[in-house]
Simulated assay, not measured.
Amino acid sequence: MSVTLNVCITCRAGEVQVEGQPCAGRRLHDALSREACPAGVQVVPVECLSACPRGAAVAFSSPGRWTYVYGDMGEMDAPVLLAAAAAYGRTADGLVPWRERAEIIRKRSIARVPPLKDF
């Protein structure tokens, strides 16, 4: 299993940015970095996932699997996001059965992108 959990570190999540204070996306990334990361899951900061109205945003991706983008995430969601990334990684195609998904994963989905095909 090799899963990338991209975290938008520029997401403001509707907050007014205060100089010297980290934005919501950076705080989420920091919270994820403080948690024990499941084997095969890599947390990667990215500059923007273009989901600004739904920040803080994250994306799960892996070769040969569907990519998922989720929004409206916060620091308190870090443990659930890591568990969800691990569940995603245990699938062959990235499709975790609906009933096995955490509620925040079911309700905060922004996009599902098909896997790239070799041409």
Rank of each mutant, 00 (worst) to 15 (best):
I104R: 08
C23V: 07
A36K: 11
G14Y: 08
A111C: 01
A13V: 02
D72H: 15
P115F: 11
V3G: 00
I104D: 00
C11L: 10
A51K: 01
S109Y: 09
C11G: 04
M76E: 15
G25K: 00
V16G: 12
T10S: 11
D30N: 06
S109T: 14
R27H: 02
E15M: 13
D77I: 02
K107G: 09
V3P: 06
R99A: 15
R90N: 06
G25R: 02
R106G: 07
G55C: 06
A78C: 05
C48K: 07
R108S: 09
M76C: 11
V18Y: 09
K107S: 12
D118R: 08
A31H: 10
I105W: 10
P38H: 00
D118H: 12
A39R: 09
A87W: 06
R101D: 11
C52L: 01
A51N: 07
M1Q: 14
C37N: 12
A87D: 08
A85W: 06
Q42H: 14
G14V: 15
M73T: 07
T4Q: 11
G55I: 04
E100I: 05
A56Y: 01
F60N: 05
G25A: 02
A39L: 09
I105G: 01
P45V: 05
L32A: 00
E47P: 02
G74Y: 03
P38M: 11
S2K: 14
A85V: 03
V41S: 00
S33C: 12
V46E: 00
A78T: 09
P22M: 06
Q21P: 10
P38K: 06
P97Q: 02
V113P: 14
V41H: 06
I105M: 15
A87K: 04
C48W: 02
I110G: 03
